[in-house]
Structures are given as structure tokens and as C-alpha cells.
């Protein structure tokens, strides 16, 4: 496999000339690929992608997201997921085919302000994102603390194969549920949730600096008064 090269780009920057395919946040014009966003360009084989460094969440089908219920009507819940469009969960997704607007009260399931973990079931530019709570662990999250992380920093918060999240969880004894949209729920004892949320904040501010793992590890060690559980170091966002 070819080595991945990264470089900082801004919109309009020439990323690479020649026969390359823009995969994400890049476009092709004549014989070259240009960046569409501020980010890090990545060329892998003949594929070019820009890992964005800014922006709201763009829904992708099957992404787990954490959302906040902002409206309920007779047929659906409106869920705020830190994106351009409000998302929806339809009543039939929860009540099944036998759903009847006359009989079933949606607020019995989720009410305004509830935090839910859901999966993006359908989305394209012309259709608001549709969420589903059918699946293991999906549904309302009834305890913990919601922190809002920039969606572009989520890959860093997860780390390579979940290493960053695991380090924070193991060191603080909390559980962290991360939505791809950046909304993240921490559960655990209050003092430990505080440390975990501070560690997440640190990941966010230092996300694109070298030595992130060491920085967070040092913070956890200091805060928890014992050695943090150290995963293998990584500089990889994905």
C-alpha cells in the first residue's frame, strides 16, 4: 500500500495533478484535483480526500449519532444532530407497523429534551436525515453528561481503533458514547465525568497537534493521581 501523504490545504488549493479521483471534500477540474475545504489532504492510491478541519456534521448513512429531541408531533420526533438539517425519527420506527396515531402517545417513548443514540437510516441532500433507534444500545440515554465536540474532531477523540476513547474511559472509569456528529455522552460518577469531559476538551483544542496522546495521557495521570492506561501512540485521525 502506498504511503499516505498529508498536507494542509485551503479551498481552491491544487492537491494533485494527474489521474486522481476526488473522494471527499475535493473536486476535479481538467487534469487536477483541488480542495473544497480547509483540511488535510490525503492521497491513497488514486483517491484524494480532504479531512476537514472545520464544519458541521454531514450525515452519512449508518453513522451512530447522538441527538437531542426538540419536537414531537403525532407521527415523528424532530432531533437536533448538529447538522444543517433537523433529523427525524418516525413513530413507526419505534412502534412498528402497528403504529396508530390515535392510540400511541409518542411522548411515552421520547420527550422534548431527551438525548438519544440513533443510527442514520437515510439521507441525501434533498431529504432530511432519517434516524432509526432499532438496534442494540440505540435509544434514549437516561443518565450522564452530554458534551458537544466539533464533528471534525471526532476521529481524534476515537483514536486509532478506539484507543483514545478507551484510554479516557479506562483511566477515569467512565463510559463514553460518541456520536459521529460530535455529541458525546459520558456516564460515571460525577467527579470522574468531570475529568473525562476535561480530557475530551483537551482532545478538541489540541486535536491537530502532534503528541496528542501524550498530552492527554499526562493530563489523565495528573488528574487521576495514577498512571493513565496507555494505548499505542497514534497520529492517525481515521
Amino acid at each position: 500500500m502506498s504511503k499516505i501523504q498529508r498536507k494542509f490545504v485551503v479551498p481552491g488549493d491544487l492537491v494533485v495533478k494527474g489521474d486522481f479521483e476526488p473522494v471527499a471534500n475535493a473536486y476535479r477540474d481538467a487534469d487536477a484535483v483541488y480542495a473544497l475545504k480547509v483540511g488535510l489532504s490525503e492521497i491513497e492510491g488514486d483517491k484524494v480526500r480532504i479531512i476537514p478541519l472545520a464544519g458541521r456534521y454531514i450525515p452519512r448513512i449508518d453513522d451512530p449519532v447522538v441527538g437531542i429531541v426538540t419536537d414531537v408531533n403525532a407521527f415523528a420526533w424532530t432531533v437536533e444532530i448538529n447538522s444543517f438539517f433537523p433529523a427525524f425519527i418516525t413513530a413507526s420506527d419505534v412502534f412498528g407497523k402497528r403504529f396508530s396515531p390515535e392510540r400511541d402517545d409518542l411522548t411515552r417513548m421520547f420527550n422534548m429534551g431527551d438525548v438519544v443514540l440513533a443510527r442514520v437510516a437515510a439521507f441525501d441532500r434533498f431529504k432530511d436525515p432519517m434516524l432509526s433507534v432499532a438496534g442494540p444500545r440505540l435509544g434514549a440515554i437516561r443518565g450522564g453528561q452530554l458534551v458537544k465536540v466539533s464533528p471534525v474532531k471526532v476521529p481524534r477523540l476515537i483514536g486509532r481503533r478506539g484507543a483514545m476513547t478507551k484510554m479516557i474511559e479506562d483511566s477515569t472509569g467512565t463510559r463514553i458514547t460518541i456520536g459521529q456528529n460530535g455529541y458525546t455522552v459520558i456516564t460515571g460518577p460525577p467527579d470522574k465525568m468531570l475529568v473525562a469531559s476535561q480530557a475530551i476538551e483537551l482532545v478538541e483544542t489540541d486535536a491537530h497537534m502532534a503528541g496528542l496522546t501524550e498530552t492527554v495521557q499526562a493530563f489523565l495521570t495528573k488528574s487521576m493521581g495514577r498512571n493513565a492506561v496507555i494505548p499505542e501512540p497514534d497520529y492517525d485521525g481515521e
Binding site: 485551503v10 479551498p11 481552491g12 471534500n25 473536486y27 483541488y34 473544497l36 475545504k37 480547509v38 476537514p52 478541519l53 472545520a54 464544519g55 458541521r56 471534525v152
Partner: peptide
């Protein structure tokens, strides 16, 4: 606009 992560052909 670039800082907001909005896709642009050029600055």
C-alpha cells in the same frame, strides 16, 4: 466561510 468548513471552489 472557509473557517466555517463550507465547501468552496476557491477562496
Amino acid at each position: 466561510l472557509a473557517d466555517a468548513g463550507i465547501p468552496m471552489r476557491d477562496l
